[in-house]
Computed example of a mutant assay.
Amino acid sequence: MNRLVLITMFIAIGAIISLLSHWLRSDFLVQLYGVTLVSVILACTALSFAMYSFIANKLIEIKRRFPRKFQGTNHELYVALKTQISLLGALIVLLICYHSPVIIDGWVFSSLTLETFINFIIICFIHIMYDMGKTTYYIVVCFDLIMSLDNKDKDTKSNMHTIK
């Protein structure tokens, strides 16, 4: 349910951005939807893959010290990865359509509709990057806390052996 609300909200924001751009007669979006956008999205995807790797390594390290199951976290990482790849593929298709005179000339609202969905994908990537950054932050904070607890546990066990 939460994802449906986010998708609806992102589409609405994408539509608002497109409408504002048209009303203001700004060509910023047209310029953005060139090679620059694909480069930025590919860079964001590469950055998020690096974050996935970092998160997975920290979870493996935590799991070694404290046997816990992270199926939910692993599943969410997999879903985010699949989502990014799907969004990247959809973005390329949308940009091809957006730059096609056959499609743009075929329907009056085609450019506005395509811009709305391109903006939606951009907003999704921004949200994914924010979510990955937040996750990385929490893992680092929790990892430090877990390691300090692990060290305290070792110190307590060491002191108990000394007392005996």
Rank of each mutant, 00 (worst) to 15 (best):
M1P: 07
N2H: 09
R3A: 08
V5Y: 08
L6W: 04
T8P: 01
T8G: 15
T8D: 06
M9E: 05
M9L: 08
F10A: 15
F10R: 13
F10K: 12
I11Y: 03
I11W: 01
A12E: 01
I13N: 03
A15T: 09
I16P: 00
I17L: 15
I17Q: 10
S18M: 05
S18K: 12
L20V: 14
S21I: 06
W23G: 04
L24T: 10
R25P: 00
S26A: 11
S26Q: 10
D27R: 15
D27T: 15
F28T: 14
F28C: 02
F28G: 07
L29G: 03
L32Y: 05
L32E: 11
Y33F: 15
G34N: 11
G34L: 03
G34V: 07
V35D: 13
T36D: 13
L37A: 03
L37S: 04
V38H: 00
V38L: 10
S39I: 03
I41F: 02
C44N: 05
C44V: 06
S48P: 00
F49C: 08
M51R: 01
M51W: 00
Y52V: 11
I55H: 01
N57Q: 14
L59M: 15
I60V: 12
I60D: 07
E61I: 07
E61Y: 07
F66W: 06
F66Q: 09
F66C: 02
K69P: 02
F70S: 10
F70L: 06
Q71V: 12
G72W: 00
E76L: 13
Y78F: 12
Y78K: 12
V79M: 14
V79F: 11
L81N: 12
L81A: 10
T83Y: 04
T83K: 04
S86A: 13
S86M: 12
L88N: 09
G89K: 02
G89M: 14
A90Q: 13
A90I: 07
L91F: 03
L94Y: 09
L95A: 02
L95E: 12
C97H: 01
C97M: 15
Y98T: 11
H99N: 15
H99K: 10
S100M: 08
S100H: 01
P101Y: 06
V102D: 07
I103N: 01
I104A: 10
W107R: 02
V108I: 11
V108M: 03
F109T: 06
E115G: 07
F117Q: 05
N119P: 08
N119T: 08
I121L: 02
I122S: 08
I122E: 09
I123R: 05
I123P: 09
I123T: 09
C124W: 07
C124Y: 05
F125I: 04
F125Y: 15
F125W: 08
H127T: 09
M132F: 12
K134E: 15
T135N: 14
T136N: 05
T136V: 09
Y137M: 08
Y137C: 03
Y138S: 11
I139N: 06
F143D: 14
D144P: 01
L145N: 06
L145Q: 11
I146V: 12
S148F: 01
L149G: 03
K154C: 00
K154S: 05
D155A: 14
S158P: 00
M160V: 08
H161D: 13
T162M: 07
K164R: 13
